[in-house]
């Protein structure tokens, strides 16, 4: 393979990785804007969704059926967690809320360890056939599925917020929580819905990547952190910024791993996070996220 083909190959795997980060960041930003809580357990939704679907498939369910059940189960789990752990602390300072979501994350990870153990599990690729040859690079068809899911999620969320009544209510709640309450909108229900949605989107993302990466009980932690990196790069307040941040991070990691060293791939994104937080905490993309006073 020539150099340009190699670079294109890296770009493709970067976009695949980035697509996953974008999906996580999208869920994080949406939830953050509605509830003010940065859900550090988002990555665990991916792991649990993927592991559950893999178990269902192994038990004989078809892939679409396993997908639907896992997504529904994680939506339920997201909603339940919101009711049991986020809602009771809705008036607590950010300090306490972030401790809670991090605690949820480690508990869910421990639970996954107890149920599924440390062995990786697999899911079949969504479409058969070998890699597609594009511009001299071998593209895994599953990558296209992932990018398709990103596009669907962006379009779906956009359509939901712009076109449906519930979506408009969400946006009203984002803009002004007190105001929303005054006109009869219940922010508590929206918060629950946001977490359920995060669970569903997380499960879908987890199932989509499993044919490429396999699923393990601890896959969610770094994915969640990287989703955070993407969301913060994007300024923590815009869906577009989150997607762009995710894709950028994925490409950066792919090139970093391909051209420098794969062992430091994870360190790279953490360095990016530290860099952004220390240098431009308001994000690289979009408007200023932190209110000054």
């Amino acid at each position: 393979m020539d150099l340009s083909g190699q670079l294109f190959q890296l770009l493709c795997s970067g976009l695949t990785l980035g697509g996953i980060y974008a999906l996580i960041a999208l869920a994080l930003v949406t939830t953050f804007n509605i509830t003010g809580v940065l859900n550090m357990a988002q990555g665990e939704f991916l792991a649990l969704g993927a592991l559950l679907a893999a178990s269902l498939c192994a038990a004989g369910a078809s892939l679409p059926l396993a997908f639907v059940i896992a997504v529904a189960a994680l939506a339920l789990l997201g909603g339940l967690l919101e009711r049991s752990a986020i809602h009771p602390a809705r008036h607590a300072p950010g300090l306490i809320q972030i401790i809670i979501t991090i605690s949820l994350s480690i508990s869910l990870r421990g639970l996954a360890l107890l149920i599924w153990g440390t062995e990786p599990v697999a899911l079949p690729a969504f479409s058969g056939g070998g890699p597609l040859l594009v511009l001299g690079a071998a593209v895994n068809p599953q990558s296209l599925w992932i990018l398709g899911l990103v596009a669907l999620a962006v379009v779906g969320l956009h359509g939901f917020f712009e076109l449906t009544y519930t979506g408009k209510v969400f946006r009203a709640c984002e803009i002004n929580r007190t105001g929303a309450r005054l006109v009869g909108i219940n922010p508590a229900a929206l918060s629950c819905l946001a977490f359920a949605g995060s669970g569903a989107l997380g499960a879908a993302a987890g199932i989509f990547i499993t044919p490429v990466t396999l699923a393990t009980y601890d896959m969610g932690f770094l994915l969640g952190v990287k989703g955070c990196v993407a969301a913060i790069i994007g300024g923590l307040n815009s869906a577009g910024g989150a997607v762009l941040g995710g894709l950028l991070l994925g490409i950066l990691e792919a090139f970093g791993a391909g051209l420098v060293s794969s062992g430091l791939k994870d360190a790279l994104s953490l360095l990016v996070l530290m860099g952004v937080l220390l240098w431009r905490p308001e994000g690289l993309i979009g408007a200023v996220a932190g209110r000054k006073v």
Partner: peptide, 17 residues
Amino acid sequence: GEYQIIFFGIILVLVMI
């Protein structure tokens, strides 16, 4: 493995709430 962490996590959530 580190299954204790489940309990630590749950306790932390409960204490925080």
